[in-house]
Design a binder for these strands. Structure first.
Lengths: 207, 207
DNA sequence: GATTATGTTGACCGATACGGTCAGCGGAGG
DNA sequence: CCTCCGCTGACCGTATCGGTCAACATAATC
């Protein structure tokens, strides 16, 4: 790819990246035309080909960018640090939301790219994903203390249940085209409050 | 549309419908070619045009079929009947799962069609949706008794939380291409059991 | 003001894919 | 043998695709 892309004003770089995420998140690789990305970025198709040699290069660049900034933001946001269950879930979601504010379609793009079947790119995606997993694996949650929670509860189910509800929340907002991240954030925080009240031992006693 | 479609063996009708749901659920209306649907259905493009005058007619037929069979199955499954919270949630999900067994992509198709922006079909979709809503609206849940649940719980939050987790569960399974409905059903039942234990008053006392 | 370097585009190319048509194949029934 | 009918491959005109290129605009350099 053309190194001049990086000397572009940051605003313009992000415009192009956002456009790429947007278009590639809506259709498969093969059905996402360069012309559409250029139009969404507000530049000409020629200029897009000036920065990226071909479609594949742009696609893999976007995938790499997606993975890179996700890890960066996660580290910056302290999502890998050792906290209690709720606050680590909270910091993880905060990072996700901050990322979506900057790049609204990054989440859907990541999922689509990961499951992309087109032989022109699929193997590269899988290989790259493997490297990222190898580097950042093993960052686990601190062992949680069962005594913090209401007695008899299935902690694994509780965790999975919270995860699923978070995903469902995200997915529901993604469905409507115009995603209101402020509303999402507020709803997510309400969810966490609700879980604390229901699942935590001491909080329950306050009722 | 050609009435001969209905005199086709049911198996073949379903093949075509399934293929339509599949292709239209993966891309937008404009980017879903008839040739791909025909190939997925195992018939020639010509034959597809023999049963449906054009792409739009097929699309609207699929949308109508989707709405019709959903309502039919919901009624047959007793999802509109008056039950307690958990069992009505359960029967609703059972219907959804049974539908997905027969037409794996019907759910994603419905969502995509509802949010479809293409002017060639969007207005027809919205109009048709309005009619369905007008007919089947107002079927509400029975008033639930707060005394059944643990004291002090926010019932509205509880309901929304359960809804979100169900959606998140569905969405997660949909992401992996090959969806294992049996596993989904099992996991959903586990979720309901978990909720009962955590949210219901008498169940909690059993612990 | 002339010249050069840099950023950007519209027009264009060959190839492919699209929605839709149609003549005709092949098998079953008369 | 003929006729009907389900079904297809080949085809048509057009649109769109990935990618190229000459040229325009703008600003810096001399």
């Amino acid at each position: 790819m053309n190194p001049k892309f990086y000397s572009l004003p940051e605003e313009k770089q992000q415009q192009i990246i956002r456009a790429g995420f947007r278009v590639f998140s809506q259709s498969s690789y093969r059905k996402s035309p360069m012309s559409e990305i250029a139009a969404a970025a507000g530049i000409s198709k020629s200029l897009l080909f000036h920065y990226f040699q071909n479609k594949k290069e742009l696609y893999l660049f976007l995938w790499d960018t997606c993975a890179r900034i996700t890890v960066e933001e996660m580290e910056k946001g302290g999502a890998y640090d050792q906290h209690d269950l709720f606050s680590s879930m909270d910091s993880g979601m905060q990072v996700k939301l901050r990322l979506m504010r900057k790049y609204p379609d990054i989440g859907v793009f990541a999922v689509r790219a990961f499951y992309e079947k087109d032989p022109e790119v699929s193997s590269d995606i899988q290989k790259s994903m493997g490297q990222y997993l190898a580097v950042h694996a093993g960052k686990k949650l601190k062992e949680i203390d069962p005594n913090d929670f209401i007695p008899g509860i299935d902690l694994e189910m509780m965790y999975r249940e919270m995860y699923l509800a978070s995903e469902g929340c995200l997915w529901e907002y993604l469905q409507r085209g115009s995603l209101d991240i402020d509303a999402m954030q507020k709803e997510f925080e309400e969810l966490v409050e609700f879980w604390k009240k229901v699942y935590l031992r001491r909080e329950r006693e306050d009722i």
